[in-house]
């Protein structure tokens, strides 16, 4: 019996993202649901979770914030990357009118959902926010007809946060999809109204196993790696609104 823990893939294309990141296109496939993730290992560096921005070919978008992400963002074409997965539960099949809300680099987790929905003829309205234009990461997307950028300091796009900018769209959508910093998701949970369509969010936690064993990724009683990383907003509202420990 083979262990087959990792699949090894090579970088075929590297696209810089903003000042601090990169999208890596790899030479393999890992069929997945939008929202699922892989554990990515660079021997001698680290292993961490990353959303599959595309599965055919496998594509990762990384924000360089630490040792592994800096090493990944600096990889040259031809370099090797080790992956295990895909893991977790992705988004349920979307409807026809998707409101996509991404904060910071969180938008990476929503790219595949949006792209597949567009390909099936759905309408997607996307709002991407960042603190300043420097931090804005635009992952590898197809052409967007309705992409709105916001920055907290007004240096690019609309001045303000994503939730304010998208306020008018909540009634239009038949599904809301959000990923971003926890304060943004908490704000979404606080402003949630009963006449909104279903809200799905993608949570991030520090992970070790990625497969529901160690417990380090817990959010309340939920394990983000195995029960998520996609949750219905209602499932995790109490945890999002709880004061931090």
């Amino acid at each position: 019996m083979l262990d087959n823990i990792y699949q090894v893939m090579r970088v075929t294309e590297r696209i810089p993202e903003g000042k601090c990141g990169a999208t890596l296109v790899l030479d393999g496939e890992l069929p997945c649901q939008a929202g699922q993730f892989v554990m990515v290992w660079l021997p001698g560096v680290e292993e961490r979770p990353f959303t599959l921005v595309n599965d055919t070919p496998v594509t990762l978008t990384v924000a360089a914030i630490g040792p592994l992400t800096r090493a990944l963002a600096g990889l040259e074409v031809g370099a090797r990357v080790w992956l295990r997965g895909p893991y977790g539960h992705g988004f349920p099949p979307p409807g026809r009118r998707l409101l996509v809300l991404g904060g910071g680099s969180g938008i990476a987790s929503l790219a595949l959902l949006a792209r597949r929905a567009l390909a099936e003829g759905a309408e997607v309205r996307t709002y991407i926010g960042a603190r300043t234009t420097d931090l804005l990461m635009l992952p590898w997307y197809p052409h967007w007809s309705t992409l709105t950028l916001t920055t907290d300091d007004g240096s690019q796009g609309i001045h303000g946060n994503v939730l304010q900018a998208a306020a008018e769209q909540f009634a239009w959508a038949d599904g809301i999809y959000a990923c971003g910093p926890e304060p943004m998701l908490a704000a979404l949970a606080r402003s949630r109204r009963s006449d909104w369509p279903p809200c799905w969010i993608n949570l991030e936690r520090v992970m070790r196993c990625g497969i529901g064993v160690c417990g380090s990724c817990h959010c309340g009683s939920h394990l983000v790696c195995a029960d998520g990383p996609v949750f219905n907003l209602e499932q995790v509202t109490a945890e999002l609104l709880a004061p931090p420990h």
Partner: peptide
């Protein structure tokens, strides 16, 4: 320890959390 710390293999798990 840093990751990788927990891995599934053919006979079960190996861990060095």
């Amino acid at each position: 320890h840093p990751n990788p710390t927990v891995l599934p293999w053919a006979g079960g798990l190996i861990n060095a959390v």
